[in-house]
Amino acid sequence: MKKIHIYGAAALIVCLSLAGCSQASTNHQQAEATKAEQAADTNEQSQSIEVDKGLLHTEFTMPASMFKDQDMDSITADAQKSGVDEITKNADGSVTFRMPKAAHKELMKKAGKGMLQAIEDLKSGNYLAFIKDVKHNKAFSEFTFIVDQKAYKNSFDAIANFGIGAAAMSYQAIAGVAPEELKVTINIQAEGTDTIFDSIIYPDALEKMSGK
């Protein structure tokens, strides 16, 4: 079973959005990308996004955990290529990005596409065979994993593989959710039933994994 490192997944979403990484797409993936654009537009209107007082720029802050073991120089260079014109590393390790609103809108669309691709990868069963389906809300703040319950319970590194939680936190941060308000819930549902038998909540799960 291929393991998805939790911080690597978050970095992947940052890469897909800030750096504008691209990959070949099937017709199905293109359809999912269209859904992502529509969801991003809806999310942009419905979420409370923290913006600066200027008329032309938007600011968002990503928590320090998103940059664990990451090369800040590379992240800075990639972010600037995507239109970020100011990056501030805060005392608590979090990083604030400032960019034109038009560029931020495109960033949200790319981040949405990245999230949908990550979800499709999970649903494929190539990473975690016990996952049979994945459901999520538009804000990517709540997920339901439909799983083979027996296989799930026999998987010792199941939670460690849920990189989607860290990735979703990254998406929310880009959307403007304050670091202290970031929260992602992953409900585990037994295949063929309506029974939720486990739940993983981020960032609590990250803190447990790091031994805090």
Rank of each mutant, 00 (worst) to 15 (best):
A40N: 05
A64K: 15
K68M: 13
A139K: 12
A103H: 05
F140H: 13
K81T: 06
A40W: 03
F130R: 12
V147E: 03
T76A: 15
L116F: 07
M62L: 14
D52K: 08
M99D: 06
D92Q: 01
D133P: 02
K81H: 04
D85Y: 09
S124M: 02
A36H: 02
E50D: 12
I75N: 05
H104I: 03
T58A: 14
F140I: 11
I119R: 01
K110W: 04
G54H: 08
T76R: 12
G54C: 01
S65M: 14
I87V: 09
I75E: 01
A40H: 05
A91Y: 08
A31S: 11
L128F: 10
E59W: 08
D133A: 11
I131R: 06
K135V: 03
Q47Y: 06
A31G: 04
F97V: 04
A139V: 10
T144P: 09
K89L: 06
A111V: 09
P63V: 10
H136L: 01
K109T: 12
I131V: 12
V134F: 01
D73M: 12
N90M: 07
A102Q: 10
F145M: 13
M99W: 00
D41G: 14
A129K: 09
N126T: 12
T76G: 15
A64L: 02
K53P: 01
A129T: 14
Q45S: 09
G93I: 08
K110N: 02
I75Q: 07
K105F: 04
A64I: 06
G83R: 05
I146K: 07
D92P: 02
K81I: 00
M62V: 13
V51N: 07
K135G: 07
F97K: 01
Q70F: 12
D71A: 13
S94D: 08
E106T: 10
S94K: 12
A139T: 12
A31H: 08
L128M: 11
K109W: 05
L55G: 14
Q70S: 13
P100R: 04
V147G: 02
G125A: 02
S141K: 07
E50Y: 00
Q47L: 13
A129E: 10
S124R: 01
I146S: 08
M108N: 14
M115R: 06
F60M: 04
M66C: 05
V147P: 03
K101H: 06
A40F: 00
A40S: 11
S124I: 04
E32W: 04
K68E: 15
D85L: 15
S74C: 07
Q38R: 03
A77F: 08
E50R: 05
A103N: 04
D121E: 15
D69I: 04
K132V: 02
S141P: 10
E32G: 01
A102E: 11
D41N: 15
S46L: 03
S48N: 13
T42E: 10
T96F: 00
V84G: 02
A40I: 05
S94P: 03
D41Q: 14
F97Q: 08
Q70K: 11
A91W: 02
F143P: 11
R98V: 09
A64P: 00
E120T: 09
E86P: 00
M99I: 14
E86H: 14
Q45G: 03
G112F: 02
A33Q: 11
A39I: 07
V51R: 11
M66F: 05
G125Y: 00
G93E: 06
Q80F: 00
D69M: 11
P63H: 04
S46R: 05
G125M: 00
